[in-house]
Design a binder for these strands. Structure first.
Lengths: 244, 244
DNA sequence: CTGTGCCAGATTGTCAACAATCGACCATCA
DNA sequence: TGATGGTCGATTGTTGACAATCTGGCACAG
């Protein structure tokens, strides 16, 4: 999955410590998947006891899983009262995309001087995978592929805190994209947008790349914002105890 | 504490919901304080059972507190084996300061067009508080004041995700500064550095402010890196079960 | 002397019961 | 009718005991 594994099979990796998966990690994956798939829509209550029997775990690991999803921005909680899936808002969209612009630009600045051919090749490969999934009409794969595409530059940067910051945005972004694709079916033709992105990434002009990133994000925030405005408020607040 | 409270006493705030403090939150504060004060030095093991009796809590809340400190970068853990205070490294210093440069520049760009006089006044106030604590030789207060000083622009930006990113850096920064000040006593004369920072912040030239931030961070990373190199490796890894 | 397998202690992971708190509902009264 | 106070169910917070896993050292064979 990591960039270095893509092009250079590392024999040493075969002997890597494979830590036994904890229940918490498992619950995080499943719960995150359920939220991003829309099985549990934004605003829906997340009751610890219900979830613990749904996932067949006790409340201990479940609580820790919820805390992690709170960190990722997928879940919000208020002490002694309740926990629910995060709601969507236009303010968040602006924050996500503006910060993303800054981070992705910085990531490219880190990678740029290296003239890394493997990076570029892998970027093209991921772009083709993305195009393929779009053409196939597979929305779920398209979202994942788009995240993989944009994630590459963070991986290659080797900047762990930067990767961490990207991870903090990734889940939030996915939440919006997933809601969008559920509401509107396949997402518009992104092909052109990615073509120019790729072209700039392969060029020699860093300033042009900066502009390209800014434009790319501008288009993203417009699309997402327009979508959000069509569903005025995601729902009348569900009261305590409903489990739609 | 929030910026808006500084200049405009808000009567409504008196009636604000004051959430009952949970044990977890309390433990987080105390444990973080102990780490940042150096009571528990980098690399020292954090055994859940010991800590739970030290803080007179059960392991449940304590574990959740540890998870939060992991998020903040103050603690590292490996499943089924152990948890310890994060070690210091020069790579981390570079990452912290480079990301900080990007974020703080972005924060200033957000605030800049507003020509916010209250922001500038508060910035000056916090700078004077910082100078005062430096002159008084109070290292602990100086660190806190420096964080408050730089934190202002994030608060004023109103950008929650940006504030969140800053919070992710804040603890890590504090860890290094605290170690530095324990090793070397009072930190060098930062007065000049802050004078030019303030001057640029009050000027009209955003580009000059960008340069000032970059320079400021460059000085910071140099100082911290030089300090780290004097303590080659913070210690031979303490073995399992030692509790220094 | 070197490597290998096993054992014991230490540490984290998990569970199920209990306590504290909150929010909605309803009866009551001005 | 509108406000007010109490009560009850629902939900999260906390606890102590138990299970799973890892690490380091030691005996033993080569």
């Amino acid at each position: 999955m990591a960039f270095s594994d893509v092009s250079t099979p590392d024999v040493g990796a075969l002997f890597e410590r494979v830590p036994k998966a904890t229940l918490r990690a498992h619950v995080v994956e499943r719960l995150r998947g359920a939220i991003l798939a829309g099985d549990i829509p934004p605003g829906a209550p997340l009751v610890e006891t219900s979830l613990s029997e749904r996932f067949e775990v006790s409340r201990g690991p479940l609580r820790e899983a919820l805390r992690q999803l709170i960190e990722e921005g997928l879940v919000v909680t208020v002490p002694y009262t309740g926990t629910r899936v995060a709601e969507l808002s236009v303010e968040d969209v602006h924050e996500i995309y503006s910060l993303r612009t800054v981070l992705e630009t910085f990531a490219f600045e880190q990678v740029w001087p290296r003239r890394d051919d493997r990076f570029r090749a892998e970027l093209r490969r991921r772009n083709e995978a993305l195009i393929a999934s779009i053409d196939a009409g597979d929305d779920r794969a398209s979202i994942l592929n788009e995240l993989e595409f944009h994630g590459l530059v963070y991986e290659v940067s080797g900047h762990r805190l930067l990767q961490r910051a990207w991870n903090g945005l990734r889940g939030r972004l996915q939440l919006y994209w997933a809601a969008h694709h559920r509401a509107h079916g396949r997402r518009g033709p992104k092909r052109d947008s990615h073509d120019s992105y790729i072209k700039a990434a392969f060029g020699a002009d860093l300033e042009a790349m900066r502009r390209e990133i800014a434009d790319h994000m501008r288009r993203g925030v417009e699309t997402t914002e327009r979508f959000l405005r069509t569903m005025p408020t995601s729902s009348g607040k569900p009261k305590r105890g409903d489990n739609s």
